[in-house]
Amino acid sequence: MSTRVLVTGATGFVAGQVVAELLEHGYAVRATVRDLGNAGKCAHLVELAECTAGALDFAQADLDHDEGWTAALSGCTEVLHIASPFPTAPPDDEHELIATAVEGTQRVLRACAAVGTVRRVVLTSSIAAIAHGHADDALRTEADWSVVDRSPAYPKSKTLAERAAWEFVEKLPAEGGFELVVINPGMVLGPVQSASTSTSHEPVRRLLARDMPGSPRVGWAIVDVRDLAVAHRLALETPAAAGNRYICAGEHLWMGEIARIVADEFDPRGFRVPTRQLPNWVVRAVAVFDRGVRLTLPTLGRTERLSAEKARRELGWTMRPVRETVLDTAESLVQYGIVERPTPRKSATPQTVASDAVRV
């Protein structure tokens, strides 16, 4: 294809899979990274490009700085803006997280408007901009927005960043402006491409590594990163997608349900996945010392109910079974050494075998 697509934050979990999807479909991709000198973080993307019909080059640009964005956008007609901060724990200052998300998005859009060659921007937002702060658990669609005043820091940042993007595009001149499409994914799971991981993998990683004795009563509407990458490509290719938001999320799954899926497959291989559900008071006690667990407290007992019907209908988008997503996630964490394989145990006495059969 003659078109060149800029993908921001290319070494991230979602962006890396989007780069792979575009390369496999023959696109020329320019990928932004924070540091061009860190070749190791880009090595898996270079290998992907060598095995596909696409072309790949890199540009250095950072959401916190203006420098580099004009050069990165040179010759690009489409932009997939995926880079965005994702906290690993509740931030000490939510304003810093919000400012990075909002100002980073505005910075990219200003550069797109300045170069004058960009025809369409696909922005990766989140269901966090749709499903938080509501007084009920009704089924949410693209018509919904999270209630900022009743939302934790991360949903606030995603909501305000997406609203800022729509406001920016609305003010563009009729001539010389660009189209905006927004993708709102749920909890993103799926296989990693290298020995690095993201916050979204933490539930599966913790289960395999037995970092917790059980599962909090938390859950998510899940999407496979590979299906999400397809949604991004379809958002580029579908003319009628301009001006639309698209939820990309499947069924809600409790962490305990994820644990049972993983246990069924991995316990026979020597893992001992904890499948017990933890009482809320235990989770709150653990959260005092574990900031990662503290991040889940606002969602204890909360069900995410979202409709992806619009993406199915207008983009022709489909999702694979969630069990496949969960198991492929776990398999990749083991494959890349993010979770250690269990050490084979010596032959056990019958009493030990009986004890081991009791999973906690």
Score class of each variant (00 low, 15 high):
Asp264Gln: 15
Glu331Pro: 10
Ser332Glu: 06
Arg305Gly: 11
Pro274Glu: 01
Ala287Asn: 03
Phe271Cys: 03
Asp267Ser: 01
Pro344Leu: 14
Gln335Lys: 15
Gly256Phe: 11
Phe266Met: 02
Glu257Cys: 13
Trp281Ala: 01
Thr325Phe: 09
Ser332Cys: 06
Leu278Asp: 01
Lys310Tyr: 13
Pro321Asp: 08
Thr325Glu: 09
Phe289Tyr: 02
Asp290His: 09
Arg269Ser: 11
Glu331Val: 13
Phe289Asp: 01
Val339Lys: 10
Trp281Asp: 00
Val322Lys: 13
Arg312Gly: 09
Glu304Phe: 15
Leu295Thr: 07
Pro344Ala: 04
Ala263Ile: 10
Val286Met: 13
Trp317Pro: 02
Glu265Tyr: 13
Arg312Tyr: 03
Pro268Arg: 05
Pro298Tyr: 04
Pro342Ser: 07
Tyr336Ile: 11
Leu333Tyr: 04
Leu327Trp: 12
Arg276Asn: 00
Asp267Phe: 00
Ser332Met: 05
Val283Ala: 03
Arg313Gly: 07
Pro279Cys: 00
Val286Leu: 12
Gly301Ala: 06
Gly337Phe: 07
Thr275Ser: 00
Asn280Pro: 03
Val282Ser: 01
Leu327Ser: 13
Val282Trp: 04
Glu331Ile: 07
Ala287Ile: 05
Pro268Leu: 06
Asp290Val: 06
Arg284Pro: 10
Val334Ile: 15
Thr325His: 10
Ile258Cys: 12
Pro321His: 12
Arg269Pro: 10
Leu278Thr: 02
Arg294Tyr: 10
Glu340Phe: 13
Leu300Ser: 08
Ala308Glu: 05
Trp281Lys: 00
Ile338Ser: 05
Arg276Pro: 00
Ser307Gln: 13
Glu265Lys: 15
Thr325Pro: 09
Gln335Cys: 12
Ala259Cys: 09
Thr329Glu: 07
Ala308Tyr: 14
Thr329Trp: 10
Pro298Trp: 07
Val286Lys: 04
Ser332Pro: 06
Phe266Arg: 03
Ala259Val: 12
Gly270Ser: 01
Glu257Gly: 03
Ala263Gln: 12
Arg341Asn: 04
Thr318Tyr: 11
Asn280Tyr: 01
Gly270Ile: 02
Gly301Asn: 09
Arg291Pro: 03
Pro321Trp: 06
Ala308Thr: 12
Val334Met: 14
Val322His: 09
Arg323Gln: 15
Glu324Pro: 00
Thr303Arg: 15
Arg294Pro: 07
Ala263Pro: 14
Thr275Met: 02
Pro321Tyr: 08
Asp328Met: 09
Ala308Arg: 10
Val262Asp: 10
Phe271Ala: 00
Glu331Ala: 14
Ala287His: 06
Arg313Lys: 08
Arg320Tyr: 05
Met319Trp: 02
Glu309Phe: 11
Thr299Val: 14
Pro279Val: 00
Ile338Lys: 02
Leu300Asn: 07
Arg276Phe: 01
Thr296Asp: 04
Leu306Asn: 15
Thr329His: 09
